[in-house]
Design a protein around this nucleic acid. Structure first.
Lengths: 216, 216
DNA sequence: ACCTGAACACCGTTCAAGT
DNA sequence: ACCTGAACACCGTTCAAGT
């Protein structure tokens, strides 16, 4: 943000388009992010991202090894955003760990529904070789850790049952992840996926997870 | 199958490559299915699918309107396969509806882990316009119905709690769907995703869903 | 009726050359 | 140090022409 602002100032100072962009990496990220949000990562070409950023089609290669590297950068930012949302949600939610788990689940689903193409980029098959992007893998693992922390806090408080943290975390993560993807991808037959439905469905699903589907 | 066999016989009868393939549509499906299983739908071109099927790069357009139509056909076959697996699993599982739910969940995850690229094709963003492929949307809805039937049977038997069938189904579907995608995409940090882990994790996650994450 | 080959407008990537 | 323009090998799609 700060760098982008500085670059804009510099452009205003010079009063004309410069041969050197000055902050092309951020401009590419912004252009790619906007285009992908509209049409999805598969449907956007590096050439039109470059064009949207105001440079030639080859300029991106000064900042990214290839298209995959740009996509990995955006996906990583998505993971970091989702982690930050989770942390903020935990901090902002009163009512104890059970309420926090509820709120985090809902925030996860909301993130996915608001940015479905980003969610697909993060968890889909567009990035073919995760081993080539270790910091992306790191961000993904950090998200798993954040979720695990919420579950641990729930167990420590007595709101959640005892048992292997990994198992509980995987179960909770799978539920909200599946729900987010089904909603983001419009795979749920019955309903219009508006804000009210997202709130209601994520609330009910997480409540069912905590209480259990089995007979009482 | 019958048509493919007949075509093979015809080829054997003639003893040479014919100008008219005879069963090109099935050959394209088979070639595409194999290539996509290896490298994913995004990474496979229509030209190499045609080449693998032994025809020119334009021949596919006699049988499919475009690449999207071929992908939609394969995704639809995937949905029908998953529906059939579900039905067979229900029929083959003794021990009542709770055991059936367990078995179906595990079968869903197994399907995803065995054919991760197909699962991505079915639920990812590769097919951009579902409205253009109504029979694909129909197959997807039929899968949801099949899952709903299992939940209904569970409620009728008393194994599952009362409540809105849609809510229970969405919860159970989200869990197994999220688990399948996290495993198929290798997004679970800790573990090697082998057959034993799939069995163990899907068993434990579904058990936790039925019993509930909350304190007993 | 079904398939081929040339053609078109694209795409990712490379690289010498410009500023 | 950073960006451009031409070039290369590809790709999806179309269409006249072949069988």
């Amino acid at each position: 943000m700060a760098r982008a602002h500085a670059a804009a100032d510099a452009a205003a100072d010079s009063g004309k388009t410069r041969y050197h962009h000055g902050d092309l990496k951020n401009a590419l990220q912004a252009a790619a992010s906007a285009l992908i949000a509209q049409r999805g990562a598969e449907a956007v070409s590096l050439r039109e991202i470059s064009q949207a950023a105001g440079v030639s089609h080859a300029a991106a290669y000064r900042h990214y090894a290839d298209k995959q590297a740009l996509l990995a950068d955006l996906a990583e930012a998505g993971f970091r955003e989702l982690i930050a949302i989770n942390r903020r949600t935990v901090a902002a939610t009163a009512g104890g760990p059970a309420a926090q788990l509820q709120a985090c689940g809902r925030a996860y689903v909301r993130f996915g529904v608001r940015q479905p193409q980003l969610l697909q980029l993060m968890f889909g098959a567009a990035i073919t070789d995760w081993q080539a992007h270790p910091s992306l893998a790191g961000a993904s693992a950090a998200l798993a850790d954040t979720l695990s922390d919420v579950v641990k806090a729930g167990q420590a408080s007595g709101a959640l049952r005892e048992g292997d943290v990994g198992d509980l975390t995987l179960t909770a993560w799978s539920l909200v992840h599946g729900l987010a993807l089904l909603m983001a991808g419009r795979r749920i037959p019955q309903a219009a996926v508006d804000a009210a439905f997202v709130r209601r469905a994520s609330q009910r699903c997480v409540a069912l997870l905590i209480d259990g589907l089995g007979r009482r």
